[in-house]
């Protein structure tokens, strides 16, 4: 009996410490020191309203925009309320069929040869904001054709948006698709 009373007491007491005081203190300090990150790393448009988060990818499909990674989130791609991957196994015919179809779409836009895997295989979160620099550069001719811009300008815009490994060796070089597309729209590409 005594241990049942102790169990309830220690649960309630430690829940106050770890479930109330701790998250409250972390929230207050983060909001003071890192308000931008704590609130979702939002990107604000010209009118001051948020247009997206630099950490969450968006479902660009128009040929005028750089395409992000395929997304397997439920209902529709880049559904931020249903993060997750396809969970298709490596020998699953459905996976191989999807990859072949995406490869065909790229061929339709004149992309020949070997393509980088990130452009035809779905991410783990379904919200991956990045693609590899190779995957971005491969799309330069399409963008330049659709937007009537010189390839050189589009390419230099991509190169400007490559984020490097952290501390020199952590992680892979990458390009944030939403930021790159916002730059395209904003006219940063013009002279």
């Amino acid at each position: 009996m005594r241990e049942i009373r102790n169990s309830v007491f220690f649960f309630l007491a430690l829940a106050l410490v770890t479930g109330v005081a701790y998250p409250a203190a972390v929230t207050v300090l983060s909001q003071l020191i890192f308000p931008e990150q704590a609130n979702g790393s939002l990107i604000y448009g010209g009118a001051g309203a948020p247009v997206g988060s630099s950490l969450i990818g968006q479902p660009f499909s128009n040929a005028r925009y750089f395409w992000p990674r395929p997304s397997a989130t439920a209902d529709f791609p880049y559904n931020a309320l249903a993060s997750g991957g396809s969970n298709l196994g490596p020998t699953n015919k459905e996976l191989l069929g999807q990859v072949a179809a995406r490869r065909e779409t790229l061929r339709g836009y004149g992309i020949q040869g070997i393509v980088p895997a990130d452009l035809v295989m779905a991410s783990a979160s379904g919200l991956d904001p990045h693609i590899s620099p190779e995957a971005a550069l491969l799309q330069v001719p399409r963008i330049s054709g659709e937007r009537k811009l010189s390839e050189k300008k589009v390419r230099s815009l991509v190169l400007k948006h490559i984020e490097d490994s952290q501390l020199g060796f952590l992680g892979a070089p990458r390009v944030n698709v939403l930021k790159l597309n916002l730059a395209l729209d904003s006219g940063e590409n013009r002279d």
Binding site: L96, P116, A117, M121, H130, L170, R174
Partner: peptide, 26 residues
């Protein structure tokens, strides 16, 4: 990597279910 995918003209390691930023090591 996955030879079945590589046969379809896809380069490098399998990216299904992986995120770009971590790299293969991460």
């Amino acid at each position: 990597g996955n030879p079945l995918v590589q046969k379809l003209g896809v380069g490098g390691y399998s990216m299904e279910g992986k995120e770009v930023r971590f790299g293969l090591g991460g």
